[in-house]
Simulated assay, not measured.
Amino acid sequence: MSGDQERDAALSQAVRLREQGQTERAREELVALAQRYPQDTEVAYQAGWAHDVLGLEAEAVPFYERALSGPGLSEEDRHGVFLGLGSTYRVLGRFELSLRTLRGGLAEFPQDPALQAFLAMALYNAGQGREAVQTLLKTLTASSADLRVRSYRSAIDHYAEDLDAME
């Protein structure tokens, strides 16, 4: 088996373990893989995710940062890194880094509702409640399939721009 095939098989096995709820074993295998392939962004992302799932947010950060530092991630995985790292920074109380990361994700994935929701939480935690509410309202109107929300979209969007308006 070639090195690439060996890496792919080991990574698939570790992801499968995580998906099956064997998160500690998956984390151990992913840490070993990350040591073996230190420049591999996909391995780094999966290692970050495994730490995150176990509530080891501080340990997840370097893996997520490594995953964003180079090429090689699929679009879906890159989105996942922005979300995972932004959320992890928020949980750790590193609000400015959270905002920067989530906004970076939105620069690549504009109007993504999941990134917007996590941005709103980070904004709230950073003391920017007005922008948090605006972000949530705009995300709601842009992504909701609910007929009532859709019928009031223009009014909700209007008031999102001026939360103090009473007209």
Rank of each mutant, 00 (worst) to 15 (best):
G3Q: 13
A26H: 01
L85A: 03
V149K: 05
G129F: 09
H79G: 07
Y124D: 13
L119G: 03
Q134E: 13
D4K: 12
L102Y: 00
Y89F: 13
G48D: 04
D112A: 00
P71G: 10
R27W: 05
L115C: 04
T101C: 02
L68P: 03
L56V: 08
A50V: 01
A107M: 09
T23H: 12
H158Y: 14
E75K: 14
D146H: 09
S69T: 05
G3R: 13
E65G: 07
T141P: 00
A67E: 01
L136A: 15
T101P: 00
G129S: 14
R153C: 07
V31Y: 01
A9Q: 15
L137W: 02
D157C: 09
A58E: 14
E108V: 07
Y64H: 05
Y89R: 05
A155L: 13
Q134M: 10
R94P: 00
R25H: 10
V43F: 03
G84K: 01
E6T: 15
G104T: 00
D52F: 13
Y45V: 04
I156P: 01
A10D: 06
E59D: 15
R25F: 08
G80A: 07
S98G: 04
Q5W: 11
L68S: 04
R153Q: 15
A58M: 09
S69G: 13
D8H: 10
S87A: 10
A160G: 06
R148I: 11
R7F: 05
D4F: 11
D40N: 11
G80W: 00
R153G: 12
D40R: 06
L99R: 00
G55K: 07
R130V: 15
V133K: 10
F63R: 07
P38C: 00
S143K: 03
E42F: 10
R27P: 08
L119D: 01
Q22W: 08
P71A: 15
L83S: 08
A145H: 12
D162Q: 11
R7H: 06
M121H: 11
Y37A: 06
D112S: 04
E161M: 07
L115A: 02
P62D: 02
R36E: 14
A145N: 13
E28H: 09
L85R: 00
F82S: 00
L140I: 04
E161A: 11
Y45L: 08
L123H: 01
F95H: 13
D77H: 15
R103N: 07
E131A: 13
H51G: 03
D52W: 11
P62E: 03
R103F: 02
F95C: 08
S98D: 01
V133G: 06
M166Y: 09
R66K: 14
M166W: 09
R66A: 15
L54I: 06
R7V: 00
S144I: 00
A32N: 10
Q116T: 10
V31Q: 05
G105A: 06
A44S: 09
Q46P: 09
F82L: 04
D77E: 15
L17I: 08
Y37D: 05
Q13I: 08
R130D: 14
A114T: 12
